[in-house]
Design a binder for these strands. Structure first.
Lengths: 339, 339
DNA sequence: CTGTTAGCGCATTCAT
DNA sequence: ATGAATGCGCTAACAG
């Protein structure tokens, strides 16, 4: 049997409230002498505070929830979620909060999942790249549980932490354009993922604005994994007319592309220039080193936690769109002369 | 104000116990007609069960804790933790459990951290690669909270889920040996991490058993990051006498090594063969594709969760040491002829 | 300054 | 078959 404050109170023949105040250092003040004796017997009795019981009263758990909606079953596999989660954890650590990862978003029906989020275990929720339509939000709204998203800014009123996708894609394409590329293909991401859609739109817009034609077989769909990058590359590389550059909506797909190119003896960047997105940890180490659009994922995760903390304390929050930065490395160069 | 079972009871003018039984479908049986009315008003009142309150009584939370002890602040950055966490999440999802990640293991003093683990929020704890001496365990033992570790089998009596590190390292070195390599260097990991130590020991043993000398400057210390891999490679590559092969204790360091080699114009595997450990997702995509020792990290994570579930139900558990598999890819070949 | 007491929301025992 | 009552461990309002 674990010791409770009642046990301490009984052994010391004082009241539980005094014990509670002594243990918590307030709000009521307790004489040092009494406090010491409380702490002492707490120790000797092996007392451990029960946060569940405390939560019942305070309504606080000091825990924030994370819902990995993107590829829910593969939260920790994608560098995106990985880095953002890392930022979340680091920021939580500073605030002395813990992080509860909710599973089963895909499996459980909306209403049911809302119940899980609202069952009292967390003080706020971060949705990682939620899908386009998200009925859960209404429930959280109604229950007044703070929540934020890392996504594009499509939910008015919901604090959003995202990167400047439009600027990021443009910087990549500008870079290619200035190198002289005119025949540019793209490997975009799932359309139902906001960020993927936005990147694709921006690509389209850029090409249009610059009067560049993109044959349909140069627009390849993927799901943000190495595998689809590889497959898309194979498809693309068997086209009669090859592009001189390819923009990938993330680094994983770019990595798959690199592998496929190597397997086919296509030289990167000599024959085809390649740009990724994210600046995943491996993108520097890869050979040739990957040119990519860096988004500050760890900062974004940290900002999300800090926003929840602010909401909890009634402070205002603002959406933030983090700047991206083009990391020019070795997979891009001017197109070779042969037409 | 969120609705409670009391509210439902009051509206229906029945008792809270009936409501509770109706909502939970037992153990007491409730007439279908009553049950339907309860469910109906529950819905219309927007009732949501409070798991915190339930936990107070049942002592169960349906949540398992994870303590990322290895590089606590970088849980999600290392492919090791990343994949194992992914396995944990997937298995938890199947069991309809959620996962609480505890932060601050490094910061909080042992006793304090034990309190965090034992504050009632989790039904069991997984320690990821805990450091050599871990006083926390005694606390959990005393409080009878189930826990398991992913590490080497150094804690007698603690269910352990690890890979066959010895066999894995041997398979890598055997491979190199059979290719004809005799001058082999190693980039090992932090000595205070069990698995790193074990891999280093195995390397030493292997070299000794085969009568191979390893100059001290061929034994390089790293911390499992790309960076130290890069640095170690630079150090190694400026030695007067170069090895013909290098065994890295993980893929991250091997990736750093690859980058450094490329920067110095050292050809892999022509001049130096390279083997990693883990079979991280990027190791296939990298060029040249990395030869590495695969450990089934996702399975290991899943096994850890399943063990907790077993302990919770009083079923017995066993340690498991998962087999590794050498993934021979493109960074290894016979040493070139020039001596 | 300190003790007594009332809940938090729920599952469960006891009583009817 | 169901209602009333108890208590999980704790905080905080209330009362001296």
């Amino acid at each position: 049997m674990a010791a409770t404050i009642k046990d301490i109170a009984r052994t010391l023949k004082i009241s539980t409230s005094t014990v509670s105040y002594a243990l918590n250092g307030g709000p009521r003040t307790v004489p040092a002498e009494v406090r010491d004796r409380v702490l002492e017997t707490a120790k000797s009795l092996g007392y451990r505070p029960n946060r569940i019981a405390r939560s019942m009263i305070t309504g606080r758990t000091n825990t924030y929830g994370v819902v990995p909606t993107e590829v829910s079953i593969n939260l920790a596999r994608s560098p995106y979620s990985q880095l953002i989660l890392n930022g979340i954890l680091n920021a939580a650590e500073v605030l002395r909060r813990d992080v509860l990862i909710f599973t089963g978003f895909d499996q459980r029906e909306g209403d049911h999942f809302a119940n899980t989020l609202l069952d009292g275990r967390v003080d706020g929720v971060i949705f990682l790249a939620p899908p386009n339509e998200n009925p859960i939000f209404a429930h959280l709204e109604e229950a007044q549980l703070p929540y934020v998203v890392t996504s594009t800014e499509r939910y008015p009123g919901v604090p959003t932490y995202t990167c400047d996708n439009v600027g990021g894609v443009r910087s990549a394409l500008d870079h290619l354009y200035q190198l002289g590329h005119r025949r540019i293909a793209t490997l975009y991401g799932k359309l139902w993922l906001d960020e993927g859609e936005l990147r694709l739109q921006t690509f389209r817009k850029f090409m249009q604005d610059h009067g560049l034609e993109v044959p349909p077989e140069w627009m390849l769909d993927g799901d943000f994994t190495q595998n689809t990058g590889y497959e898309a590359a194979e498809k693309l590389l068997s086209c009669s007319q090859l592009p001189t550059a390819v923009f990938c909506a993330n680094d994983e797909m770019a990595l798959g592309f690199l592998r496929a190119a190597a397997d086919r003896g296509i030289s990167i960047p000599k024959q085809i220039s390649l740009v990724g997105f994210d600046d995943s940890p491996f993108s520097f180490g890869v050979t040739p080193s990957l040119t990519t659009v860096r988004q500050p994922l760890e900062e974004m995760g940290a900002a999300a936690i800090q926003a929840l903390e602010a909401l909890r304390e009634g402070r205002p929050t603002n959406n933030r769109t983090f700047s991206t930065r083009l990391m020019v490395r070795a997979t891009t160069s001017s197109p070779s002369e042969d037409k």
